[in-house]
Write a protein that binds this DNA or RNA. Structure first.
Lengths: 211, 211
DNA sequence: TGTACATCAGTGAACGCGCGTTCACTGATGTAC
DNA sequence: TGTACATCAGTGAACGCGCGTTCACTGATGTAC
């Protein structure tokens, strides 16, 4: 399906109208199909129904396009994680579980975003904007970790940053090994259940009460 | 550095002598430099100092070469993990720590192998040999998990497979997010320490005694 | 030990292809008056 | 409301390049006798 202005019958005029957005959609579509390495600038132009020179009006090169995709990915990721966390309602632990599920759901439903963000080899400091977006997304996890740690007596509270990194590594590990269609290995349980059990055991190890 | 027969001054004759091995080394070198997507069949031939048609005598195509690289990667990985585990000596827990460190060391020292194995998008069932090698490597982790679980009273022993998958996902998560030179994010501690703490908390959650 | 021959591994030239990138251009849109 | 003009976004043709792949070939190696 091509993106065309107004969703009409492809009868766009000389001007596309929203080529930048269309190119980003094209990149997502193509990454989902063939992996982050499997798409070219020319491909994206073709997909958007435009001459191969047109993308240069909007992106310096393929990398800039990819990094824009990653940026939007982080923004959407943050949005979803924030929504799932919902300020820790009704209780931190329940919200935490939702957070994990949201993480995996994102990796599964938006594999192209996920690839661009974590596997395409785009350095986070490709742009300050990108880094900021990545930090904001991680910030949600960190905030959640803090809320959970608040349940512990102050004396044996590990650093929230560390706990957030642990949670993230578990989620990313599960997501990238088992969480997508083309997972390398068949599992005796769903990736969601596997992650939930893992986090549960970890939290018990931290001494979070009521688990 | 080119691979040449006998390590001499490049004065190989018409026959290379060991082109297959040289191509695999070339692939590793090139993957390490430019990522798994960043090398071509022609590149590998050039690196080995051979005409672009020569590789076809040894590999059907680029994918077959890559999958051979992955196979050797899994074999080396298994070798290292087995050595680190050392049959659980002197005690399962100490051996388990070594296993984690060996995992990260492999990802750091052999990033090209690691990429080919886990990130190049080669399906594990590209060949029965590859799957078997992957299974053997995972088998080491599983065996270690079993040894640890044996320390628990039989009544609350979770499935060893699940625990092995958890350990693997933590290791892979840390390795791929923070474990290599071009890590996305700077850490306040080493990847090794981060993983060790994570596994420790997890094992405490399992109730492994003495932790 | 020597010779003839089969097999093997690498050559080098050639091909078609798609990519990235550039360029002067042109059609469409918006704005000043 | 209409007209002139500036700006913008996409065109299409062109280029050089490196890749994958094929082919008949040839130099080197191993083996039978």
């Amino acid at each position: 399906m091509r993106w065309t202005k107004g969703g009409g019958h492809g009868s766009r005029g000389y001007h596309h109208g929203n080529l930048k957005e269309a190119l980003i959609r094209a990149a997502l579509e193509l990454i989902a199909e063939k992996g982050p390495a499997g798409f070219t600038f020319a491909d994206a132009a073709r997909w958007a129904g435009v001459s191969p020179a047109a993308p240069y009006r909007h992106f310096r090169d393929r990398d800039e396009l990819l990094s824009d995709v990653a940026l939007r990915g982080f923004e959407e990721f943050e949005r979803r994680l924030t929504k799932a966390w919902d300020e820790g309602r009704p209780a931190p632990f329940a919200a935490f579980e939702r957070l994990g599920k949201a993480y995996l759901a994102f990796a599964r439903e938006e594999p192209a975003f996920y690839s661009a963000m974590f596997e395409a080899g785009i350095p986070l400091d490709a742009s300050a904007e990108l880094r900021a977006a990545g930090d904001r997304a991680f910030g949600v996890v960190r905030m959640a970790a803090e809320a959970l740690l608040a349940l512990l007596p102050a004396a044996n509270r590990p650093p929230a940053l560390m706990v957030a990194l642990h949670i993230w590594s578990m989620s990313h590990g599960i997501a990238s090994l088992f969480g997508r269609e083309n997972a390398q290995r068949k599992l005796p349980m769903s990736a969601e259940d596997l992650l939930e059990a893992e986090v549960l055991i970890y939290l018990r190890g931290l001494g979070v009460p009521g688990i």
